[in-house]
Deep mutational scan, measured.
Amino acid sequence: VTTYKLVINGKTLKGETTTKAVDAETSEKAFKQYANDNGVDGVWTYDDATKTFTVTEMV
């Protein structure tokens, strides 16, 4: 189990959250659901070296 981080650069929501998951794909699903639940829709990137997802909304 690995800890993954999500950085949110939204128009109205900014911040970070973490989750523990067995792999990046599992954490990505959880993070995308979290973003969707909070009305964040944007461009996703992933940095495997830091286990960090970033979602950026276009303004």
Rank of each mutant, 00 (worst) to 15 (best):
A21Y: 05
V7H: 05
T26N: 06
G15A: 13
I8D: 01
V1F: 14
G10H: 08
A49Y: 09
F53C: 03
A35W: 02
T26R: 06
V43C: 10
L6S: 02
T19D: 05
T19I: 15
T17R: 13
Y34C: 05
T19G: 05
D23I: 03
A21W: 04
T19A: 09
V55H: 01
V1L: 15
V40Y: 06
T56Q: 06
F31V: 01
T12V: 11
E16R: 07
S27W: 04
Y4I: 03
Y34F: 12
E28R: 12
L13Q: 08
K14F: 10
K32P: 00
E25H: 11
K5L: 07
W44S: 00
I8N: 00
L13Y: 15
V55E: 00
F53N: 00
A24I: 12
Y34T: 02
K11T: 12
M58I: 14
K11I: 14
V7C: 07
N38A: 12
D41W: 13
D48Y: 07
L13D: 04
T12N: 12
D23T: 06
Y34R: 01
N36M: 15
W44D: 00
K29A: 11
F31R: 00
N9D: 09
E25W: 11
G39Y: 05
S27N: 01
A24G: 04
M58Y: 14
N9H: 10
G10C: 14
T54D: 01
K32Y: 05
K14M: 09
G39A: 06
W44L: 02
K29L: 11
E16V: 14
T17S: 08
D41E: 13
G15M: 15
Y46S: 01
T45F: 08
A35S: 04
N9I: 14
E28H: 12
F53T: 00
N36P: 01
N9S: 07
T12L: 11
T56C: 06
L13K: 08
T2Y: 14
N9P: 02
K20V: 14
K32W: 07
V59G: 13
T50D: 04
D47T: 04
V1Q: 12
T19N: 11
A24V: 13
T52A: 03
N9Y: 13
E16F: 14
D37I: 10
N36L: 15
T52C: 04
V55W: 01
M58H: 12
T17H: 14
T26F: 05
V59Y: 13
F31W: 02
T52L: 03
E25V: 12
T2S: 11
Y34W: 15
G15Q: 12
V1P: 10
E16P: 04
K5S: 05
W44M: 03
S27I: 08
V22H: 11
F31M: 03
T17K: 11
L6H: 01
Q33Y: 05
V40R: 01
T18W: 15
D47K: 03
E16K: 07
Y46Q: 01
K5H: 12
K11C: 14
N38V: 14
E16C: 15
G42K: 00
D23Y: 04
F53S: 00
T45V: 08
V43S: 07
V1N: 09
